[in-house]
Computed example of a mutant assay.
Amino acid sequence: MTACIHSSRTQFLEKYDCNHNNYSNFCRPDYHDQFSCKPISKNTIFSQNHEEYEDDDDDLWLKMKDEARSEVDQEPILANYYFSLILSHSSLESALANQISIKLSNLSLPSATLYDLIMGVLTQDHEVVISVKNDLKAVKERDPACISYVHCFLNFKGFVACQAHRIAHNLWLQGRTILALLIQSRVSEVFSIDIHPGAKIGSGVMFDHGTGIVIGETSVIGNNVSILHNVTLGGTGKSCGDRHPKIGDGVLIGAGTCVLGNIMIGEGAKIGAGSVVLKDVPARTTAVGNPAKLIGGKKNPTKLDKIPSFTMDHIQHVNEWSDYVI
């Protein structure tokens, strides 16, 4: 696929004394035909202003490219890596499709096939892209271990797994269940994160570490939720149909927690690490222990031995979550 390899790439790699021939492994077979592979001049690559991106008003993507250039300056040995995964792409959508397709591909499932599939979703559903950007910002703001947006994008498997789920969920809603379940299976194998494609996940979500997260089919997760590793949003095994938890906006779920059954975790609630939650948790309240007991929040004091029932307003709020575009 020599059409995608321009002289500017050779200049870029020669600056860092890298083997530019490796880039042919990352070019999509039909990339040039579907998404024009425009030449990138040496001055464009290393410019410190944004005038060269007249057609790109996405500040986050520009920031990521600047971060990638800066990190290449610090570690020239990674020039190949950053160019193929970030700097050679014209948009966040293209870079994300490339990242997911490389991670999930195998001998029987070529990365080029996955790339085309994912780009189709990202170009048709702008709301998915908005959620991707909000997830990036959420990780950068909430995780002190995240040193940059591009660091999260390339190295945080919880973030990549969440975005792969967004693609699978979109396919699930289209009735393309076989493809959706295939992506779920590959994500589970590669990242040890198992999210059913039917689950609804809001925007600005952070899966910190991610390992061991299991999210069931009828789960609903609101906006700005943080979930740590080894968390299960599962069923009790005693019911069918709508059988998984509903997580409100701004909830924090600690590591090793099990939230089981069709219960609601109210807005702004916190679930302590290692807890087993089997009943509703009111908004802005902390639940800890096995079985979980409630500790009243500052604005919503609650007795430890009683969990108040939810009103119809809360139930209606849960129904409205189904309008989230994932």
Score class of each variant (00 low, 15 high):
138 A>W: 04
131 S>F: 10
103 K>Y: 13
108 S>A: 09
129 V>P: 06
111 S>W: 15
109 L>R: 14
131 S>V: 07
93 E>K: 12
108 S>F: 15
134 N>F: 08
124 Q>R: 15
92 L>C: 02
92 L>T: 02
110 P>G: 01
135 D>Q: 05
128 V>S: 08
141 E>Q: 12
99 Q>W: 03
132 V>P: 04
108 S>K: 15
115 Y>E: 14
113 T>N: 11
141 E>M: 12
102 I>H: 06
87 L>M: 07
135 D>I: 08
135 D>S: 07
140 K>H: 04
140 K>D: 00
86 I>G: 01
121 V>P: 05
119 M>N: 09
127 E>F: 05
97 A>G: 13
90 S>F: 05
82 Y>S: 00
105 S>H: 06
117 L>Q: 14
125 D>Q: 14
114 L>M: 13
136 L>H: 00
97 A>P: 07
139 V>N: 05
104 L>M: 08
112 A>W: 15
140 K>V: 04
127 E>D: 12
124 Q>S: 15
103 K>H: 10
98 N>H: 14
130 I>T: 09
86 I>C: 06
113 T>R: 14
86 I>D: 02
127 E>S: 12
118 I>E: 06
104 L>W: 08
82 Y>M: 04
102 I>V: 06
87 L>Q: 02
95 A>H: 10
100 I>L: 15
104 L>A: 03
114 L>F: 12
90 S>K: 14
86 I>Y: 04
117 L>I: 08
101 S>E: 14
131 S>Y: 07
121 V>H: 06
128 V>R: 07
111 S>C: 13
83 F>M: 02
128 V>F: 09
106 N>W: 13
82 Y>E: 02
120 G>F: 15
133 K>E: 10
93 E>F: 02
123 T>D: 10
112 A>M: 10
86 I>L: 07
136 L>T: 01
86 I>W: 03
111 S>R: 15
138 A>M: 11
122 L>K: 07
131 S>H: 14
92 L>K: 01
96 L>A: 04
117 L>T: 14
100 I>C: 03
125 D>G: 01
84 S>K: 06
133 K>F: 02
125 D>T: 12
132 V>F: 08
100 I>H: 10
134 N>Q: 13
86 I>R: 03
103 K>N: 12
104 L>C: 04
82 Y>Q: 01
124 Q>I: 12
98 N>M: 05
135 D>T: 01
139 V>H: 06
131 S>D: 14
109 L>F: 10
101 S>L: 15
119 M>P: 02
93 E>R: 11
96 L>T: 07
118 I>V: 12
128 V>C: 08
85 L>T: 08
120 G>S: 11
104 L>Q: 10
92 L>E: 07
141 E>G: 01
136 L>C: 00
90 S>H: 06
88 S>V: 03
103 K>I: 06
131 S>C: 13
113 T>Y: 15
139 V>W: 08
130 I>K: 10
125 D>M: 11
92 L>W: 09
89 H>Y: 11
110 P>K: 09
